[in-house]
Design a protein around this nucleic acid. Sequence first.
DNA 1: ATATCGATTATCT
DNA 2: GATAATCGATATG
Length: 218
Amino acid sequence: MNKQASEASLSAIRPLPRTFFARSPRRVARELLGKVLVRDCGKLRLVARIVEVEAYLGENDPAAHAAAGNTPRNSVLFGPPGYAYVYFIYGNHYCLNVSCEREGKAGSVLFRALEPLLGIEQMARSRGIPVPDPRHLSRLTSGPGRLAQAFGITRARDNGRDLTSPASGLWIGADTFRAMNIQLTPRIGITKATTQPLRFILAGNPCVSRTKVPHPQR
DNA sequence: ATATCGATTATCT
DNA sequence: GATAATCGATATG
């Protein structure tokens, strides 16, 4: 376990301002690495470090949900920056994005993997793993569906939530941690626009969802 | 270790 | 009616 990371998470966590998200998805994605996702539910707090994200570029990105235009499902993407876009996929899983750019211009960052720091027992319960095995810590929040489940994120509960406001109960913050060893790879799990390097990872972090990269587009 | 497959439903064509 | 920004189980080397 990363002692340095754990200590940092126990210090003050400051929310990121809306201006942080009012930029290109590439820029936001890169700078989100090393920040933390926080869930406050009454007395309980969950904190996890962001170790893997993907940028989705908006209406002209064939792999982005925004490519379909503004629909009831994805309308958060076309709203102001810093809000949660949560979608349901494969009849089983929720995935979390944060909106970027500005009102009227879509663009987002998908959260793909986190490193659990605080509230690990609760994350394990939410994932249906009664006794968290330290060796399998990464299974709690490694993958977009898993991290959403660990944080209790659903579309009904969280779509449209303001991720810049601690009062919203789900927010993104910065502590004293500094991201190192940032790597760029193609995006994972998509069938369109698979060659562009838009996936950002903290290389070497055990919670990154996988090391192998998708097959090149043909 | 990697490969393949079934689950299960909101959304769009 | 087909698809999907996934996961966990099972099969096989």
